[in-house]
């Protein structure tokens, strides 16, 4: 008899569970950030042509030298301009930074570098946007720490702000 009573309570309990679940999720951002699942995995072979006078970028350029930063940027991307001083600061502190110019015209890249400075050692041109898939990137800008074996060790989503500079230097140190 008692078990029978409990059945009538079941809908209320299920509903309470649903409300708890929704309350927990309420206010979470609508657009989830999709992290790269390539962190910890080696990059596949690639070779990109250079742009704006800089030499091109290939997988072999990332290997052997020690951990480097790879920054995906574009001249049409506002946050990329915002993060330019931080990239310069990272370079001043000894980091090697390579760039990947996403879906851009060479002249626009040159103009962008002239306006916001050029912290890059090498810049690969990616007109089709296919390098995003190689890194597991979902937006621009993104910055990656790649170690001497060509393995992605860390992903930074969005623009680098002043408070992120120390963090990235530490990640570079860890990747040694």
């Amino acid at each position: 008899m008692k078990g029978k009573r409990l059945i009538w309570l079941l809908p209320l309990l299920l509903f309470a569970g649903l409300v708890a679940l929704m309350a927990n999720h309420l206010g979470a951002p609508q657009q989830q950030v999709i992290k790269s699942h390539m962190v910890g995995k080696p990059l596949a072979e690639f070779a990109l042509e250079g742009v704006a006078g800089a030499p091109g970028l290939a997988l072999v350029d990332l290997k052997g030298g020690g951990p480097v930063l790879v920054n995906i940027f574009a001249s049409w991307c506002l946050p990329c301009a915002v993060e330019a001083p931080q990239l310069q600061a990272l370079k001043d502190r000894g980091a090697t930074i390579h760039g990947i110019a996403l879906r851009d015209e060479p002249a626009d890249v040159a103009g962008f570098l002239a306006r916001h400075g050029n912290p890059f050692t090498r810049i690969g041109q990616d007109p089709g946007g296919r390098m995003m898939l190689a890194f597991g990137a979902s937006g621009v800008p993104e910055t990656y720490v790649v170690d001497a074996q060509g393995v992605i060790r860390y992903q930074h989503l969005g623009e680098i702000r002043a408070e992120h500079v120390d963090l990235l230097m530490a990640e570079l140190e860890k990747a040694k």
């Binding site: 001249s75 049409w76 301009a81 915002v82 879906r103």
Partner: peptide
């Protein structure tokens, strides 16, 4: 304000068509 300045300074901020 800095972002607004950047906006004015950058001639093209539209993503090129695919």
């Amino acid at each position: 304000f800095a972002i607004a300045l950047l906006l004015i300074a950058s001639p093209v901020l539209a993503e090129p068509p695919t």
